[in-house]
């Protein structure tokens, strides 16, 4: 091979780059996300159902939230009629997070896994969860 040193160096760099996902994951157990739906409010529900069927919510929840935002902020329409005919408040904080109060174990599980950064919380205030409550109480006590 002519100029073998340079070409082989180039090939080694190339192989290193394209196999990055293979070697960078060695020894790391990929943890499957496990969103929890066992909040106190949900456990007290007679019928443990979200506003729409689970599969639909999994695929389209972001679109629903986006539509709700537009509907409430631009049109002032705050009521959502689901496919089963029930009426819900179009409110992330008072409707969604009322049941799913565990943002860290529910929202963040999948969002972090797939690197999705929803910008809900640039306007809305994140729910205070156990860790944060503990910090706040420490500050109050001191």
């Amino acid at each position: 091979m002519y100029d073998g040193g340079k070409i082989i160096t180039g090939l080694v760099v190339f192989v290193g780059l394209v196999t990055f996902p293979l070697w960078s994951n060695v020894g790391k157990a990929a943890k499957k996300p496990d969103p929890k739906i066992d909040t106190p409010v949900i456990q007290q529900l007679a019928e443990k159902k979200c506003i729409e069927p689970k599969a639909f919510m999994q695929a389209e929840h972001m679109k629903i939230l986006n539509d709700w935002r537009d509907s409430v902020v631009r049109d002032g329409n705050k009521l959502y009629v689901s496919s089963s005919g029930k009426t819900f408040n179009m409110s992330l904080q008072n409707e969604c997070m009322n049941c799913h109060s565990n943002k860290k174990q529910f929202c963040d599980e999948c969002h972090n896994y797939t690197d999705v950064k929803p910008y809900c919380w640039t306007c809305h205030i994140e729910p205070k969860e156990k860790e944060k409550v503990a910090w706040a109480s420490i500050e109050e006590n001191s």
């Binding site: 990055f20 996902p21 960078s24 994951n25 790391k28 990929a30 943890k31 972001m62 679109k63 939230l65 986006n66 896994y113 690197d115 950064k117 929803p118 910008y119």
Partner: peptide
């Protein structure tokens, strides 16, 4: 293909979606 996701992938995503149009 990575877990945890490296910083440059996050940068690429943030920059690429910086217009924040739609979901």
């Amino acid at each position: 293909f990575t877990e945890p996701i490296p910083f440059f992938v996050k940068w690429a995503e943030t920059l690429d979606g910086i217009l924040q149009v739609g979901v």
